[in-house]
Design a protein around this nucleic acid. Structure first.
Lengths: 206, 206
DNA sequence: ATGAAATCGGGAAATGCTCCCGACAAACAT
DNA sequence: ATGTTTGTCGGGAGCATTTCCCGATTTCAT
Protein backbone atom coordinates (compact mmCIF):
# COMPACT_ATOMS: atom_id res chain seq x y z
CA UNK A 1 0.00 0.00 0.00
CA UNK A 2 1.60 3.27 -1.08
CA UNK A 3 2.34 6.01 1.39
CA UNK A 4 -0.24 8.80 1.10
CA UNK A 5 1.31 12.23 0.75
CA UNK A 6 -0.02 15.79 0.85
CA UNK A 7 1.99 18.68 -0.56
CA UNK A 8 1.74 22.36 0.39
CA UNK A 9 3.73 25.03 -1.40
CA UNK A 10 2.73 28.38 -2.84
CA UNK A 11 4.75 27.85 -6.03
CA UNK A 12 2.92 25.79 -8.61
CA UNK A 13 6.14 24.61 -10.23
CA UNK A 14 7.31 23.14 -6.92
CA UNK A 15 3.97 21.39 -6.40
CA UNK A 16 4.01 19.87 -9.86
CA UNK A 17 7.69 18.99 -9.64
CA UNK A 18 7.23 17.20 -6.32
CA UNK A 19 4.12 15.44 -7.54
CA UNK A 20 5.81 14.15 -10.68
CA UNK A 21 8.90 13.12 -8.75
CA UNK A 22 7.04 11.23 -6.02
CA UNK A 23 4.40 9.62 -8.21
CA UNK A 24 7.17 8.16 -10.34
CA UNK A 25 7.99 6.02 -7.29
CA UNK A 26 5.62 3.12 -6.79
CA UNK A 27 5.73 3.37 -3.01
CA UNK A 28 4.38 6.91 -2.87
CA UNK A 29 1.08 8.42 -3.85
CA UNK A 30 0.53 12.17 -3.85
CA UNK A 31 -3.12 12.61 -2.93
CA UNK A 32 -3.32 16.38 -3.36
CA UNK A 33 -1.24 19.49 -3.47
CA UNK A 34 -2.33 22.85 -2.12
CA UNK A 35 -0.97 26.38 -2.03
CA UNK A 36 -1.67 27.51 1.51
CA UNK A 37 -2.24 26.40 5.06
CA UNK A 38 -6.02 26.70 5.13
CA UNK A 39 -6.32 24.35 2.18
CA UNK A 40 -3.86 21.97 3.80
CA UNK A 41 -6.00 21.72 6.93
CA UNK A 42 -9.06 21.01 4.81
CA UNK A 43 -7.24 18.28 2.90
CA UNK A 44 -6.03 16.71 6.14
CA UNK A 45 -9.58 16.68 7.40
CA UNK A 46 -10.91 15.12 4.21
CA UNK A 47 -8.26 12.51 3.69
CA UNK A 48 -5.76 11.83 6.42
CA UNK A 49 -2.31 11.46 4.84
CA UNK A 50 0.69 9.54 6.13
CA UNK A 51 3.08 12.35 5.29
CA UNK A 52 2.88 16.07 4.68
CA UNK A 53 5.55 17.90 2.72
CA UNK A 54 5.13 21.60 3.34
CA UNK A 55 6.79 24.91 2.73
CA UNK A 56 6.98 27.44 5.56
CA UNK A 57 6.30 30.73 3.82
CA UNK A 58 2.89 30.76 2.18
CA UNK A 59 0.28 33.46 1.79
CA UNK A 60 -2.16 33.26 4.67
CA UNK A 61 -1.73 30.53 7.23
CA UNK A 62 1.74 29.05 7.14
CA UNK A 63 4.94 28.46 9.01
CA UNK A 64 5.12 27.49 12.63
CA UNK A 65 1.49 28.29 13.34
CA UNK A 66 0.29 25.92 10.62
CA UNK A 67 2.47 23.11 11.90
CA UNK A 68 1.32 23.70 15.45
CA UNK A 69 -2.28 23.30 14.37
CA UNK A 70 -1.72 20.17 12.34
CA UNK A 71 0.19 18.38 15.07
CA UNK A 72 -2.39 19.42 17.64
CA UNK A 73 -5.19 17.81 15.66
CA UNK A 74 -3.38 14.91 13.99
CA UNK A 75 -0.27 14.10 16.03
CA UNK A 76 0.41 10.92 14.07
CA UNK A 77 0.92 12.60 10.70
CA UNK A 78 4.56 12.83 9.72
CA UNK A 79 5.58 16.31 8.66
CA UNK A 80 8.54 17.10 6.47
CA UNK A 81 9.31 20.78 6.01
CA UNK A 82 10.70 21.75 2.63
CA UNK A 83 11.73 25.37 2.67
CA UNK A 84 14.44 27.78 1.65
CA UNK A 85 16.04 28.51 5.02
CA UNK A 86 19.30 26.92 6.10
CA UNK A 87 19.24 28.12 9.65
CA UNK A 88 19.94 25.35 12.20
CA UNK A 89 18.04 27.14 14.98
CA UNK A 90 14.92 27.21 12.91
CA UNK A 91 15.28 23.52 12.10
CA UNK A 92 15.97 22.64 15.71
CA UNK A 93 12.86 24.48 16.75
CA UNK A 94 10.73 22.72 14.15
CA UNK A 95 12.00 19.32 15.24
CA UNK A 96 11.31 20.20 18.86
CA UNK A 97 7.75 20.91 17.79
CA UNK A 98 7.39 17.43 16.35
CA UNK A 99 8.40 17.83 12.73
CA UNK A 100 10.06 14.66 11.42
CA UNK A 101 12.37 16.18 8.86
CA UNK A 102 13.69 19.34 7.25
CA UNK A 103 15.06 19.62 3.74
CA UNK A 104 16.30 22.88 2.28
CA UNK A 105 15.16 23.69 -1.20
CA UNK A 106 18.76 23.75 -2.34
CA UNK A 107 18.86 20.00 -1.93
CA UNK A 108 18.99 17.61 -4.86
CA UNK A 109 16.01 15.38 -5.49
CA UNK A 110 18.01 12.36 -4.30
CA UNK A 111 18.31 13.97 -0.88
CA UNK A 112 14.61 14.66 -0.88
CA UNK A 113 13.86 11.02 -1.57
CA UNK A 114 16.42 9.91 1.00
CA UNK A 115 14.81 12.15 3.58
CA UNK A 116 11.36 10.78 2.94
CA UNK A 117 12.72 7.25 3.13
CA UNK A 118 14.39 8.02 6.45
CA UNK A 119 11.17 9.41 7.87
CA UNK A 120 9.35 6.26 6.84
CA UNK A 121 11.93 4.32 8.81
CA UNK A 122 10.87 6.48 11.79
CA UNK A 123 14.08 8.46 11.71
CA UNK A 124 14.44 12.20 12.01
CA UNK A 125 16.13 13.71 9.00
CA UNK A 126 17.61 17.04 8.06
CA UNK A 127 19.43 17.77 4.83
CA UNK A 128 23.24 17.85 5.01
CA UNK A 129 23.50 21.59 4.46
CA UNK A 130 21.90 22.25 7.84
CA UNK A 131 24.76 22.20 10.31
CA UNK A 132 23.03 21.18 13.50
CA UNK A 133 26.22 20.58 15.47
CA UNK A 134 27.30 24.21 15.69
CA UNK A 135 26.33 25.09 19.23
CA UNK A 136 28.02 28.44 18.83
CA UNK A 137 26.67 31.47 20.55
CA UNK A 138 24.80 32.88 17.62
CA UNK A 139 22.64 35.89 18.41
CA UNK A 140 19.38 34.36 17.29
CA UNK A 141 19.73 31.42 19.66
CA UNK A 142 18.89 33.77 22.50
CA UNK A 143 15.38 34.25 21.19
CA UNK A 144 12.49 32.08 22.25
CA UNK A 145 10.30 30.33 19.68
CA UNK A 146 7.62 32.99 19.78
CA UNK A 147 10.17 35.76 19.61
CA UNK A 148 11.68 34.20 16.50
CA UNK A 149 8.22 34.03 14.92
CA UNK A 150 7.73 37.72 15.51
CA UNK A 151 11.28 38.50 14.44
CA UNK A 152 10.60 36.88 11.07
CA UNK A 153 7.32 38.69 10.58
CA UNK A 154 8.85 42.08 11.28
CA UNK A 155 11.91 41.37 9.16
CA UNK A 156 9.73 40.47 6.21
CA UNK A 157 7.96 43.79 6.31
CA UNK A 158 4.83 43.06 8.30
CA UNK A 159 3.60 45.74 10.67
CA UNK A 160 2.89 44.94 14.31
CA UNK A 161 -0.78 44.69 13.44
CA UNK A 162 -0.25 42.40 10.47
CA UNK A 163 2.06 40.23 12.53
CA UNK A 164 -0.49 39.96 15.31
CA UNK A 165 -3.13 38.85 12.84
CA UNK A 166 -0.87 36.27 11.27
CA UNK A 167 0.20 34.84 14.64
CA UNK A 168 -3.17 35.26 16.39
CA UNK A 169 -1.80 37.53 19.08
CA UNK A 170 -2.65 40.96 20.37
CA UNK A 171 -0.92 43.90 18.75
CA UNK A 172 0.35 44.74 22.19
CA UNK A 173 2.08 41.43 22.63
CA UNK A 174 3.84 41.85 19.32
CA UNK A 175 5.15 45.31 20.09
CA UNK A 176 6.19 44.22 23.57
CA UNK A 177 8.06 41.32 22.05
CA UNK A 178 9.75 43.50 19.46
CA UNK A 179 11.07 45.71 22.22
CA UNK A 180 12.38 42.68 24.06
CA UNK A 181 13.97 41.27 20.90
CA UNK A 182 15.83 44.52 20.29
CA UNK A 183 17.10 44.44 23.85
CA UNK A 184 18.21 40.82 23.63
CA UNK A 185 19.98 41.38 20.33
CA UNK A 186 21.31 44.78 21.43
CA UNK A 187 19.75 46.39 18.42
CA UNK A 188 18.44 49.92 18.22
CA UNK A 189 16.02 49.87 15.35
CA UNK A 190 13.71 47.54 13.49
CA UNK A 191 15.84 48.19 10.44
CA UNK A 192 18.75 46.34 11.96
CA UNK A 193 16.35 43.45 12.49
CA UNK A 194 15.96 43.30 8.73
CA UNK A 195 19.70 43.33 8.13
CA UNK A 196 20.27 40.58 10.67
CA UNK A 197 17.41 38.50 9.33
CA UNK A 198 18.75 38.73 5.80
CA UNK A 199 22.22 37.77 6.95
CA UNK A 200 20.78 34.80 8.82
CA UNK A 201 18.69 33.75 5.86
CA UNK A 202 15.38 34.37 7.62
CA UNK A 203 14.20 37.10 5.29
CA UNK A 204 14.71 38.14 1.74
CA UNK A 205 14.02 41.54 0.26
CA UNK A 206 10.88 41.80 -1.82
CA UNK B 1 13.05 21.85 -34.75
CA UNK B 2 12.38 22.22 -31.04
CA UNK B 3 13.29 25.38 -29.17
CA UNK B 4 16.47 24.87 -27.16
CA UNK B 5 16.09 25.93 -23.53
CA UNK B 6 18.51 26.42 -20.64
CA UNK B 7 17.26 26.55 -17.06
CA UNK B 8 18.96 28.22 -14.10
CA UNK B 9 17.57 27.95 -10.58
CA UNK B 10 19.24 27.12 -7.31
CA UNK B 11 16.40 24.81 -6.27
CA UNK B 12 16.70 21.35 -7.73
CA UNK B 13 12.98 20.70 -7.47
CA UNK B 14 12.27 23.74 -9.61
CA UNK B 15 14.85 22.64 -12.18
CA UNK B 16 13.41 19.16 -12.41
CA UNK B 17 9.82 20.42 -12.37
CA UNK B 18 10.51 22.82 -15.23
CA UNK B 19 12.41 20.19 -17.17
CA UNK B 20 9.64 17.65 -16.89
CA UNK B 21 7.02 20.24 -17.73
CA UNK B 22 8.78 21.58 -20.82
CA UNK B 23 10.07 18.29 -22.18
CA UNK B 24 6.52 16.99 -22.15
CA UNK B 25 5.86 19.52 -24.92
CA UNK B 26 7.17 18.45 -28.30
CA UNK B 27 8.17 21.95 -29.31
CA UNK B 28 10.62 22.45 -26.46
CA UNK B 29 13.84 20.77 -25.54
CA UNK B 30 15.58 21.48 -22.24
CA UNK B 31 19.27 21.12 -23.00
CA UNK B 32 20.61 21.59 -19.48
CA UNK B 33 19.71 22.98 -16.12
CA UNK B 34 22.16 24.64 -13.76
CA UNK B 35 22.12 26.03 -10.24
CA UNK B 36 24.06 29.29 -10.57
CA UNK B 37 25.15 32.02 -12.91
CA UNK B 38 28.70 30.82 -13.56
CA UNK B 39 27.41 27.47 -14.79
CA UNK B 40 24.82 29.25 -16.90
CA UNK B 41 27.51 31.26 -18.69
CA UNK B 42 29.50 28.08 -19.35
CA UNK B 43 26.45 26.34 -20.78
CA UNK B 44 25.67 29.32 -22.99
CA UNK B 45 29.22 29.21 -24.29
CA UNK B 46 29.07 25.48 -24.97
CA UNK B 47 25.67 25.33 -26.54
CA UNK B 48 23.89 28.50 -27.46
CA UNK B 49 20.22 28.16 -26.48
CA UNK B 50 17.20 29.93 -27.93
CA UNK B 51 15.72 30.68 -24.53
CA UNK B 52 16.98 30.96 -20.97
CA UNK B 53 14.64 30.58 -18.02
CA UNK B 54 16.41 31.90 -14.95
CA UNK B 55 15.84 32.74 -11.33
CA UNK B 56 17.28 35.99 -9.95
CA UNK B 57 18.52 34.95 -6.51
CA UNK B 58 21.18 32.29 -6.75
CA UNK B 59 24.35 31.68 -4.79
CA UNK B 60 27.26 33.35 -6.52
CA UNK B 61 26.60 35.16 -9.75
CA UNK B 62 22.95 35.94 -10.26
CA UNK B 63 20.37 38.63 -10.62
CA UNK B 64 20.85 41.75 -12.67
CA UNK B 65 24.59 41.29 -13.08
CA UNK B 66 24.17 37.82 -14.59
CA UNK B 67 21.58 39.05 -17.06
CA UNK B 68 23.72 42.00 -18.04
CA UNK B 69 26.64 39.67 -18.86
CA UNK B 70 24.54 37.26 -20.89
CA UNK B 71 22.95 39.96 -23.00
CA UNK B 72 26.30 41.63 -23.52
CA UNK B 73 27.77 38.47 -24.98
CA UNK B 74 24.74 36.89 -26.62
CA UNK B 75 22.19 39.62 -27.33
CA UNK B 76 20.00 37.34 -29.40
CA UNK B 77 19.21 34.87 -26.61
CA UNK B 78 15.72 35.32 -25.21
CA UNK B 79 15.66 35.55 -21.44
CA UNK B 80 12.66 34.82 -19.29
CA UNK B 81 13.07 35.57 -15.60
CA UNK B 82 11.23 33.24 -13.23
CA UNK B 83 11.53 34.53 -9.70
CA UNK B 84 9.63 35.21 -6.52
CA UNK B 85 9.35 38.98 -6.65
CA UNK B 86 6.16 40.73 -7.68
CA UNK B 87 7.61 44.20 -7.86
CA UNK B 88 6.62 45.95 -11.12
CA UNK B 89 9.55 48.33 -10.87
CA UNK B 90 11.98 45.42 -10.80
CA UNK B 91 10.25 43.85 -13.80
CA UNK B 92 10.30 47.12 -15.69
CA UNK B 93 13.99 47.44 -15.06
CA UNK B 94 14.65 43.89 -16.27
CA UNK B 95 12.65 44.47 -19.43
CA UNK B 96 14.52 47.73 -20.04
CA UNK B 97 17.70 45.66 -19.85
CA UNK B 98 16.46 43.39 -22.62
CA UNK B 99 14.71 40.58 -20.77
CA UNK B 100 11.79 39.24 -22.82
CA UNK B 101 9.53 38.10 -20.01
CA UNK B 102 8.97 37.87 -16.28
CA UNK B 103 6.88 35.27 -14.50
CA UNK B 104 6.46 35.19 -10.75
CA UNK B 105 6.84 31.83 -9.09
CA UNK B 106 3.31 32.10 -7.77
CA UNK B 107 2.07 31.57 -11.30
CA UNK B 108 0.40 28.39 -12.48
CA UNK B 109 2.18 26.23 -15.01
CA UNK B 110 -0.32 27.29 -17.68
CA UNK B 111 0.85 30.86 -17.31
CA UNK B 112 4.43 29.75 -17.57
CA UNK B 113 3.71 27.97 -20.84
CA UNK B 114 1.71 30.92 -22.11
CA UNK B 115 4.62 33.23 -21.33
CA UNK B 116 7.10 31.08 -23.20
CA UNK B 117 4.76 30.88 -26.16
CA UNK B 118 4.39 34.66 -26.16
CA UNK B 119 8.12 35.15 -26.16
CA UNK B 120 8.46 32.80 -29.09
CA UNK B 121 6.00 35.02 -30.92
CA UNK B 122 8.47 37.86 -30.21
CA UNK B 123 6.18 39.40 -27.63
CA UNK B 124 7.19 40.70 -24.22
CA UNK B 125 5.35 38.94 -21.44
CA UNK B 126 4.87 39.43 -17.72
CA UNK B 127 2.60 37.33 -15.53
CA UNK B 128 -0.76 38.88 -14.62
CA UNK B 129 0.14 39.41 -10.95
CA UNK B 130 2.69 42.05 -11.95
CA UNK B 131 0.75 45.28 -12.30
CA UNK B 132 2.76 47.19 -14.84
CA UNK B 133 0.07 49.71 -15.69
CA UNK B 134 0.72 52.10 -12.84
CA UNK B 135 2.91 55.06 -13.66
CA UNK B 136 4.65 54.04 -10.42
CA UNK B 137 7.17 52.30 -12.63
CA UNK B 138 10.28 53.99 -11.36
CA UNK B 139 9.64 54.80 -7.72
CA UNK B 140 13.16 55.82 -6.88
CA UNK B 141 13.32 58.28 -9.77
CA UNK B 142 10.49 60.16 -8.14
CA UNK B 143 12.64 60.98 -5.16
CA UNK B 144 14.58 64.22 -5.07
CA UNK B 145 18.31 64.17 -4.45
CA UNK B 146 17.88 65.03 -0.80
CA UNK B 147 15.21 62.42 -0.36
CA UNK B 148 17.47 59.80 -1.87
CA UNK B 149 20.23 60.81 0.58
CA UNK B 150 17.88 60.29 3.47
CA UNK B 151 16.51 57.10 1.95
CA UNK B 152 20.02 55.64 1.91
CA UNK B 153 20.78 56.68 5.47
CA UNK B 154 17.61 55.09 6.79
CA UNK B 155 18.06 51.94 4.72
CA UNK B 156 21.55 51.47 6.09
CA UNK B 157 20.37 51.49 9.65
CA UNK B 158 20.85 55.09 10.72
CA UNK B 159 18.26 56.64 13.01
CA UNK B 160 16.61 59.93 12.15
CA UNK B 161 18.99 61.67 14.53
CA UNK B 162 22.11 60.02 13.11
CA UNK B 163 20.94 60.82 9.61
CA UNK B 164 20.38 64.46 10.51
CA UNK B 165 23.89 64.70 11.91
CA UNK B 166 25.41 63.10 8.85
CA UNK B 167 23.51 65.36 6.47
CA UNK B 168 23.62 68.54 8.62
CA UNK B 169 19.88 68.79 8.84
CA UNK B 170 17.37 69.06 11.60
CA UNK B 171 15.94 65.84 12.97
CA UNK B 172 12.59 67.25 12.04
CA UNK B 173 13.49 67.61 8.41
CA UNK B 174 14.65 64.04 8.27
CA UNK B 175 11.49 62.62 9.75
CA UNK B 176 9.36 64.84 7.56
CA UNK B 177 11.26 63.60 4.57
CA UNK B 178 10.93 59.97 5.57
CA UNK B 179 7.17 60.39 5.74
CA UNK B 180 7.16 61.95 2.31
CA UNK B 181 9.38 59.19 0.89
CA UNK B 182 7.00 56.53 2.16
CA UNK B 183 4.11 58.34 0.57
CA UNK B 184 5.89 58.72 -2.75
CA UNK B 185 6.93 55.09 -2.80
CA UNK B 186 3.57 53.95 -1.46
CA UNK B 187 5.11 51.89 1.27
CA UNK B 188 3.97 51.57 4.84
CA UNK B 189 7.06 50.99 6.92
CA UNK B 190 10.73 51.85 7.09
CA UNK B 191 11.38 48.15 6.79
CA UNK B 192 10.16 48.14 3.23
CA UNK B 193 12.63 50.93 2.60
CA UNK B 194 15.37 48.51 3.51
CA UNK B 195 14.03 45.81 1.23
CA UNK B 196 13.73 48.21 -1.66
CA UNK B 197 17.17 49.67 -1.04
CA UNK B 198 18.74 46.22 -0.99
CA UNK B 199 16.97 45.27 -4.20
CA UNK B 200 18.19 48.49 -5.76
CA UNK B 201 21.71 47.94 -4.55
CA UNK B 202 21.62 51.03 -2.35
CA UNK B 203 22.14 49.17 0.89
CA UNK B 204 23.55 45.88 2.01
CA UNK B 205 22.86 44.06 5.24
CA UNK B 206 25.59 44.40 7.82
C1' DA C 1 9.95 87.53 -14.80
C1' DT C 2 7.17 84.02 -13.10
C1' DG C 3 5.34 79.73 -11.73
C1' DA C 4 6.70 75.19 -10.24
C1' DA C 5 9.34 72.34 -7.63
C1' DA C 6 12.85 71.59 -3.93
C1' DT C 7 14.67 72.58 0.56
C1' DC C 8 14.12 73.36 5.34
C1' DG C 9 11.81 73.23 9.64
C1' DG C 10 7.90 74.62 13.33
C1' DG C 11 3.45 73.03 15.60
C1' DA C 12 -0.17 69.76 16.96
C1' DA C 13 -2.47 65.53 16.88
C1' DA C 14 -2.18 60.76 16.13
C1' DT C 15 0.34 56.84 16.41
C1' DG C 16 3.84 53.88 18.07
C1' DC C 17 7.40 52.30 21.35
C1' DT C 18 9.19 51.24 25.87
C1' DC C 19 9.12 49.95 30.31
C1' DC C 20 6.50 48.75 34.01
C1' DC C 21 3.29 45.32 35.90
C1' DG C 22 0.37 40.86 36.88
C1' DA C 23 -1.59 36.25 35.45
C1' DC C 24 -0.92 31.84 33.92
C1' DA C 25 1.22 27.46 32.26
C1' DA C 26 5.03 24.39 31.65
C1' DA C 27 9.51 22.76 32.72
C1' DC C 28 12.83 21.85 36.12
C1' DA C 29 15.51 21.23 40.11
C1' DT C 30 15.84 20.03 45.03
C1' DA D 1 5.80 17.53 46.33
C1' DT D 2 6.90 22.22 45.93
C1' DG D 3 9.20 26.27 45.10
C1' DT D 4 11.81 28.39 41.02
C1' DT D 5 12.63 29.63 36.68
C1' DT D 6 11.27 30.52 31.98
C1' DG D 7 8.09 31.41 28.43
C1' DT D 8 3.66 33.33 26.98
C1' DC D 9 0.25 36.90 26.93
C1' DG D 10 -1.48 41.43 27.40
C1' DG D 11 -2.95 46.04 30.16
C1' DG D 12 -1.49 50.95 31.43
C1' DA D 13 1.24 55.26 31.59
C1' DG D 14 4.61 58.06 29.70
C1' DC D 15 7.69 59.15 26.34
C1' DA D 16 9.18 59.28 21.37
C1' DT D 17 8.24 59.23 16.71
C1' DT D 18 5.33 59.92 12.72
C1' DT D 19 2.26 62.30 10.15
C1' DC D 20 0.08 66.10 8.27
C1' DC D 21 -0.54 70.68 8.41
C1' DC D 22 1.75 75.16 7.41
C1' DG D 23 5.08 79.07 5.86
C1' DA D 24 9.79 80.80 4.42
C1' DT D 25 13.55 80.38 1.09
C1' DT D 26 16.01 78.92 -2.88
C1' DT D 27 16.62 76.81 -7.48
C1' DC D 28 15.39 76.26 -12.03
C1' DA D 29 13.16 76.10 -16.51
C1' DT D 30 10.29 78.55 -19.80
Amino acid sequence: MPIKILIADDHAIVRSGLTLLLNSQLSYQVMASVSNGEQLLLECQANQPDLIITDLSMPGLGGVELIRRILLKWPSINIMVFSIYQNPYLVKRLIDMGVKGYISKNSDTEILLAGIKAINRAEIYSSPDICMDTEQEKPLSKLTARELDIFCCIANGLSAKQSSEKLFLSEKTVSNNVSLIKKKLKIASSIEIVHLAILEGLASPS
